[in-house]
Design a protein around this nucleic acid. Structure first.
Length: 512
RNA sequence: GGCGCGGUAGCCAAGUGGUUAGGCAACGGUUUGCAAAACCGUCAUACGUCGGUUCGAAUCCGAUCCGCGCCUCCA
């Protein structure tokens, strides 16, 4: 087991991850409120903490990973009314879309993915406990319902995560005056609703849970009070996580901190602005997956450290089609890695031989090994994925370099055998590091076929007509009519088709 | 007003006291009929500005300019 250090938002210091119970590291991640399809920000958050879980496991830690789905919320109700769809049907549908798309970008499913609608009893129990502790109070509402609010001022530690003081929050002036609450800062644990409205029967009458209570209830159920890591987007620091701490610690007096470490991922900005509904610049996961390979999207997300902001640039291609140049660039890197893997696999299939490898092969083997170590060490240091990707690239480069050399020395049987052995080891290192990053999951064949098909479709091309042009060019080359052959190649090139003439014939690929 | 993040070569982006980040683009080379791919090299003695600490600062301290986020629903 190797120590993995992460930045803790609460202490603002590096925190060495460990399992409190000495068994498994317990991680709770705030998942989506499922009122719409997931956007790039959801993907970024899911990917960031997927890397955390994968890397902890790669380093020998057992991990219990919980990520919730918030399927009861006013936004869901509003959207469901607009669509004339029952709210839980909408949220179930969106949950499935979320799970499918997040899986598509290479995230392993959490061990537990609890839904709020399945945990009303736990929520009732927690709220009752808070009322008993004097941390929460009920307010009679019209009809036969009551609201329940949390008394922020009764919780001493309020503001410790977001570094805010209660008085400053009020000075912030955007706190609404609300006669039903004892204090404007108090937040709802339970909100009463008319019988006719979407809701559940509770000890306080018909209604729905407040926004924050579900995470306190569900994390306690699956991981217990004081679990190891609580994760989520930076925007959740206040008020969501601050309120979770207040609720959970008020409900468990004398039992220590709610979570031992807090991790938050940065935002996705679209064209320099924060992605938001009001700006109309939302990029959904399916927007990206229509245009780019899921591996490329994931690679792109990993080119920036998870805590920093990531810039999502958009551009207009031909016919007004929106493109994502940054993701296209990432896709070219994935192409490169896949081509390299293909080449290494082919070389490895030649079979290795015995005997001491030549000095060049020994040096290359050592370089691959060093990069493998460096990539994993980078992840140990607060999940430094940009450095890990650089080292992954280094492994590929060293692999290609040695295979180039082997090509020049193809008459040297001993060298070729050593190169084959090297290729097998290098491919395996590449796959090992990539696996921790959740990359290169597709086989090279799958990837090449699906990206080719997608790119042809985006460009409105068909493989049949291309095959004709390529055959015609091949014939021209055979009769040394290079003028004709080059003219055909230029035509194809203008359409984004790249040809590669080799001893085995001509291969072609499509630009991202 | 409060809290916080950032400004690193043409672009993207690591690095938080002393030896190469990396990628993309561009250009030169090896290779190729010419290309492409792959590899090598150049661009790169880059770190917003001004001062300070230090033998030594992109990195620490102070000031300052600029951009951005949160404080209301947000990943």
């Amino acid at each position: 087991m190797s120590p993995v250090r992460v930045y803790d938002t609460l202490t603002r210091q590096s925190h060495t991850v460990s399992a409190r119970d000495g068994q498994s590291v317990t991680v709770y991640c705030c998942g989506p409120t499922v009122y719409d399809v997931p956007h790039a920000g959801h993907a970024r958050s899911a990917v960031a903490f997927d890397i955390l879980v994968r890397h902890l496991r790669a380093r020998g830690h057992a991990v219990k990973y919980v990520r919730n789905v918030t399927d009861i919320d006013d936004k869901i109700l509003t959207r469901a009314r607009e669509r004339g769809e029952p709210p839980l049907e909408l949220s179930r549908r969106m949950t499935t879309v979320y799970q499918d798309q997040i899986a598509a970008v290479g995230c392993t499913a959490p061990d537990v993915e609890p839904r709020v609608s399945d945990h009303l009893p736990e929520i009732f129990a927690l709220i009752e406990r808070l009322i008993e502790q004097g941390a929460a109070y009920t307010v009679d509402m019209p009809g036969d319902t009551r609201d329940v609010y949390f008394s922020v001022r009764k919780f001493q530690g309020y503001g410790k995560l977001s570094r805010r003081r209660i008085d400053e929050l009020i000075a912030g002036a955007r706190v609404e005056k609300d006669e039903t609450k004892q204090d404007p800062l108090d937040f709802a644990l339970w909100k009463g609703a008319p019988e006719a409205e979407w809701g559940w029967q509770s000890p306080w009458g018909h209604g729905r849970p407040g926004w924050h209570i579900e995470c306190s209830a569900m994390s306690a159920k699956y991981l217990g009070h004081g679990f190891d890591i609580h994760a989520g987007g930076m925007d959740l620091i206040f008020p969501h996580h601050e309120n979770e701490i207040a609720q959970s610690e008020a409900a468990h007096p004398g039992e220590g901190d709610f979570a031992r470490c807090w991790m938050h991922n940065g935002f996705v900005n679209v064209d320099k602005e924060k992605m938001s509904k009001s700006l109309g610049n939302f990029v959904t996961v399916s927007d990206v997956l229509e245009r780019n390979d899921p591996e490329a999207f994931r690679w792109f997300l990993l080119t920036v450290h998870y805590r920093g902001p990531i810039q999502f640039e958009t551009a207009q291609a031909d016919a007004g089609r929106v493109t994502f140049p940054g993701v296209d660039e990432a896709e070219r890197r994935v192409d490169y890695m896949m081509q390299t893997l293909l080449r290494l696999d082919r070389a490895a299939a030649e079979g290795g031989g015995g005997g001491a490898p030549p000095a060049e092969v020994q040096r290359a083997t050592a370089a691959v090994s060093a990069s493998r170590e460096a990539a994993l060490a980078a992840l140990d240091d607060d999940l430094n994925t940009p450095v890990a990707l650089a080292e992954l690239g280094e492994i590929a480069k060293v692999g290609n370099e040695l295979l180039d050399l082997a090509l020049r020395r193809r008459k040297d049987a001993a060298f070729a055998a050593a190169a084959a052995g090297f290729a097998a080891k290098t491919a395996s290192s590449l796959r090992e590091v990539a696996a921790v990053l959740g990359l290169l999951r597709a086989t090279t064949a799958e990837y090449l076929v699906r990206t080719r098909e997608r790119r042809l479709r985006l460009r409105g091309l068909s493989a049949d007509t291309l095959d004709e042009a390529i055959a015609e060019r091949f014939a021209a080359r055979q009769r040394k009519d290079f003028v004709r052959a080059d003219a055909l190649r230029d035509e194809l090139s203008a359409q984004g088709i790249v040809l590669r003439d080799g001893p085995e014939g001509t291969e072609w690929s499509v630009e991202p």
